[in-house]
Computed example of a mutant assay.
Amino acid sequence: MKFSIIKFKSKKGMELVQVAILVALAVALGLIFKTEITDFVNKTFEGLSDFN
């Protein structure tokens, strides 16, 4: 019995997998750094409101 490496002939499938991995990574980073991101955004908007 021969074992062969499966070659992906459809590039769209690989692109979909890559996009799904990037989205999952972005969501995971957002959940991990949620408090830091919230603090940064709040400080930024406070600085903008003080600018007026």
Rank of each mutant, 00 (worst) to 15 (best):
G13F: 04
K34L: 01
S49W: 05
I37V: 00
V41I: 11
E15C: 05
E36D: 10
T35A: 13
E15K: 09
S10F: 08
G47W: 07
F51D: 05
V17D: 07
L22P: 00
V17W: 12
L25F: 09
L31F: 14
L48C: 02
A26I: 09
I32P: 00
V23Y: 02
I32R: 13
N52I: 15
N52R: 12
V41C: 03
D50I: 06
D39Q: 14
V17E: 10
S49A: 13
V19C: 07
Q18K: 14
F33G: 01
E15A: 10
E15D: 08
K12I: 13
V19H: 10
K2Q: 07
F51S: 09
I5Q: 00
V17Q: 12
A28E: 01
T35Y: 09
I21K: 05
M1R: 08
I6E: 10
A26V: 11
I5D: 00
G47C: 01
E36S: 07
V19M: 12
G30C: 01
E46K: 06
M14D: 13
T38I: 10
K2V: 06
I21D: 00
L22W: 12
K7R: 11
V19I: 12
I37N: 01
I5N: 01
K11G: 14
A28V: 08
K43W: 05
K43V: 00
E36I: 05
V41L: 12
K34M: 02
K11C: 14
N52Y: 15
D39K: 13
K34F: 04
V41H: 02
M14N: 12
K9P: 02
